[in-house]
Every structure is written in C-alpha cells, then in structure tokens.
Design a protein around this nucleic acid. Structure first.
Length: 423
RNA sequence: GGAGAGAUGGCCGAGUGGUCGAAGGCGCACGCCUGGAAAGUGUGUAUACUCCAAAAGGGUAUCAUGGGUUCGAAUCCCAUUCUCUCCGCCA
C-alpha cells in the first residue's frame, strides 16, 4: 500500500511512475485525493466537537463536586447534543476512511527508477547468465519420463490419493527432496540467515498483511471451521513476524530463512505449463526474507541475487537472470529479478526464484517500522526471494544431469543425498 | 471439551467512575560525578491521525478487540479473541 502523504504531496509523480507498470492511476488517485480532503475536514470538525465535549464533562464534574447539581444539569443538554452530532459525524468519517482504504489498496507499488518499460515477459532484460546447457548426441528426456523410468516420481498415485498437482516422490526421489531442503537451509545459514520453522497455516490478519487478502483469496486453501489459510509461501508467516513492530536501527539487517511446504490452488492454470513438476498445488520451498534500512535495500537486493546465483552454480545448472519490465512485475514489487534455469529435456526456461524489493509497500500495510537517527518512526523495507523452490530445480536437475544410464548428482549435493547416481 | 482466573506502556506492576496517557520499578537515551568504568545522581523516554509554512506548541483517539451504560470509563455491563490453572482427551 502506498503512503497517503506521498500521494497527497505528488499525485502527478505517482501517475507517471505507475504508467511504467502499464497502470492507469489517474481516476484512483483523483478519488483518493478527494476522499482524503473530505476525511481531514470531517476529522477537524469531529475533533473540535469531542474537545468541547471533554471540556464540558470536566466542568460538570467540578460543578457536582461543588454541589451545584442544577447548573450541571443545564450543561448536560449541550453534551447530549454534541454526543449525537459527533456520533453521526464519526460514522460518516469511518465510511470515508473505509472508502479511501479501498481505493488505496488498488494502487500497485511504484517501480524503481531502473525498471525497464515493457508489457510482457519478452520485454524483460537479461542481466546475467551462467552454467552450460548440455550438448549430447542422444535424446534428452523430460523429467516426467525420467521420473517414471527410475521410479522416483509418481503423478498418478498423487491423483489417486489427493488430485492433480500432488505428486509423490519415491526412494531416491524422496531422498533428493530432503537433501535439497537441507542443502538450501545450510547454505543460507552459512550466508548469515537465521533459520525459522514457521506455521503452515495463518490467520486472516497475516494473510492480509502480506497482500494475499483480499484480492488473492481464491489462490489459497482455506479451513473455514477455524478461519485459517494454508500458506502459499513461507514469506507469509516469516514476514508477519514483524507485523506491527518497531525495530531499532541496530536490528538491521534482518536476514531470515525458512523451509516450508507451499500450497497453491492455482485456479485457472492449465495446459503445457502445468505438466509434470512445472506447476503444483503443493511443493517445497526454502525462502529468504530480509528486512532492511531504506538506504540499504537495493544493495541487499543485489546481495540476494548473488547469493542465489551461487546456489545455482553449486547445482551446476544453466541459468539466466532477468530484470523484470514494468508490465511483468508483481503488484507489490518495486524491482524484481527472476532467476530461470534451463530444463534441457523440455528445452524450456523455468522460473525458480523471483527476488524482489518491496521497499515500504508491504511495510506500510503491516506497520513495520524502525526508529531512525532522529528518533522518528519510519517504514522499513522488505525483500524476499526463493532460495530455492524445489520442483523446477528437481526438473532441471534431472533433465540436465541425465546420462544414458541414469542421473548424475552434482558434487555439492552428494554429502546430502548420500548417493551420486540415480538409476 | 468442562470449570475457574486473567489481559494495563519495551518489560514488571499499581490503579474499581472525574484531577489518568496512566503511580512505582526495571530497561533504554542524554547529562553530572569518575583518571576510566561500576555504583550513585538528575532529566527524558508510547503510537496513530490531525491543526500550524515549519519548529515550538495544540487537538483527537488508543489500558486485548468490538459494542453498551454515563455529563464523564483503564475502572461498570454485554459479546468476541487470547493467556494461565485444574479436570478430561491425546502424538
């Protein structure tokens, strides 16, 4: 959520910047400014009324103490009148404030200055790449074929037990999952992140704070009896640690990492993009979250991208890094880098991590602040990214490291798997 | 699930209708003291919105949350949520 004072001070700038995200903000900004003006007018009147009310109440108290009950009684008429008026006015104010809030949550975050203009993924800028795409003279299989060939992945069984998008991992396939989770967590801890084990279900307030509610409600699994949501990412519980918190400057940088299963309904997904492990309803992910001083957040973002690159290098996967264009960025992000790995069996690039700086956008919504040099409270910046999401990493690992007679495990992972070949 | 007790500032804790945004203590910040530190001592120390060109200063709201009674609520009433204790159940 954008801060109202920024909109008030420079509405033209907001409209201009949001155009980079192909978002037409004119009418919303106009509505917000009007509502804000109305709100402040009402607030001024209401406060004056309440102030008078408070003053009279005190005077009446003094009169009673002095035994002047009849004088006090006369003043009560005025307070009753004030009470009725202020009641009506505060209802009106609530309404205006709610309307303003509804408009405010419609505005996406402003893109950072270096975000390239553009409409689609094709307009993204590739800013880095590495690793080698395998060149072999035998046919490379997609991971779903490799999965059944070596008995490590079972999609049909998942359909029987739960439904599409809930595969089972078996034998070395299951052990590979466990190894990757531990590998990612250990690497993050070595890089200075604090490990957390969060709840997998969250309440409404948490889902709202990270922006899943109200508009992405349909994307989450929901347990109505207890009004709890299954998390779509560990970002939700981990970022919510800091909801309604005022940090000290010395708390920065806050670096957290968490493994969790992630649950996504993926309503509306279909077709070839959802084949195999490419898109699932339940998957494993290790997520990194940083809370940063506003002056440092872009430095932190670069650091996070560099960190994920080291992971991809250790897994010996061909990758590329894209700086997202305005049109491809998410609602809350100010700058996003997508990390993609090449899946040689499908001949496709798969997104395995999306690392974003949200600046103060999330922090504003969940009131995450810190005391700055002058002792004033100021919004902190939040950042997060996958490091990494397992299914597409597994897909790419299987497809790129396949041999005619099995699948090679990269050296960095062997201490975690306990084996170096799947056949 | 049943019965009972409770929820006050960063923390502990006082406060049962007015002078209470809230005693006292701890913590923290700054100063004094000291060669330096500790101890001691003094001062300060919630958040949001808003008025004012800004600073200074003022107003309003907030004692779990929402509603009610009252001229006036941290204090009384109702509902909700959460915590603790005991009983039951249980990996």
């Amino acid at each position: 959520m954008l801060q109202i004072n920024i909109i008030r001070d420079n509405p033209g700038y907001i409209i201009e910047r949001l155009a980079i995200k192909n978002f037409k903000a004119e009418s919303i900004v106009e509505n917000i400014l009007q509502l804000d003006k109305k709100r402040r007018e009402l607030l001024k009147l209401l406060d004056a009324m309440l102030a008078e009310s408070n003053r009279l109440a005190k005077e009446i108290g003094v009169l009673y103490q002095q035994g002047k009950a009849d004088e006090a009684g006369k003043m009560k008429a005025r307070t009753a009148e004030l009470k009725e008026q202020s009641g009506l006015m505060s209802e009106e104010l609530d309404q205006v404030q709610q309307q303003m809030q509804e408009e405010l949550v419609l505005l996406p975050n402003l893109p950072a200055a270096i975000v390239p203009p553009g409409k689609h993924a094709e307009d993204n800028e590739i800013v880095n790449h590495g690793g080698k795409v395998p060149e072999v003279d035998w046919p490379l299989l997609p991971h779903w074929d490799l999965g059944s060939k070596y008995g490590i992945l079972d999609f049909e069984l998942g359909v029987k037990i739960t439904g599409a998008g809930f595969p089972l991992y078996r034998g070395k396939g299951a052990r590979l999952q466990r190894a990757l989770i531990n590998f990612f967590l250990d690497e993050a801890v070595k890089a200075g992140y604090t490990e957390y084990q969060p709840p997998y279900v969250v309440n409404e307030a948490s889902a709202f704070a990270t922006g899943q509610l109200p508009d992405k409600e349909g994307q989450m699994y929901f347990a109505p009896v207890d009004k709890l949501y299954l998390i779509p990412t560990a970002e939700v519980p981990i970022t919510n640690i800091y909801r309604d918190v005022i940090l000290k400057q010395t708390d920065f940088p806050l670096k957290n990492v968490a493994y969790s299963a992630c649950f996504r309904r993926e309503a509306g997904s279909y077709g070839k993009d959802v084949r195999g492990l490419n898109r699932l309803h339940q998957f494993d992910k290790v997520e990194i979250v940083q809370i940063s001083h506003p002056d440092k957040s872009y430095q932190v973002l670069d650091e996070m991208v560099e960190y994920v690159i080291t992971l991809l290098n250790k897994l010996e996967l061909p990758f590329r890094v894209a700086k997202l264009c305005g049109g491809d960025m998410s609602f809350a992000s100010a700058l996003t880098y997508d990390m993609e790995v090449f899946a040689a069996g499908q001949q496709k690039w798969l997104e395995v991590s999306s690392i974003s700086n949200f600046e103060a956008f999330q922090a504003n919504r969940m009131k995450l602040r810190f005391k700055n040099e002058e002792g004033k409270t100021e919004l902190a910046h939040t950042l997060n990214g996958s490091a990494l999401a397992l299914p597409r990493i597994v897909a790419s690992l299987l497809e790129n490291h396949q041999q005619p007679d099995g699948i090679r495990i990269p050296d960095a992972l062997v201490p975690y798997t306990g084996f170096n070949f799947i056949n």
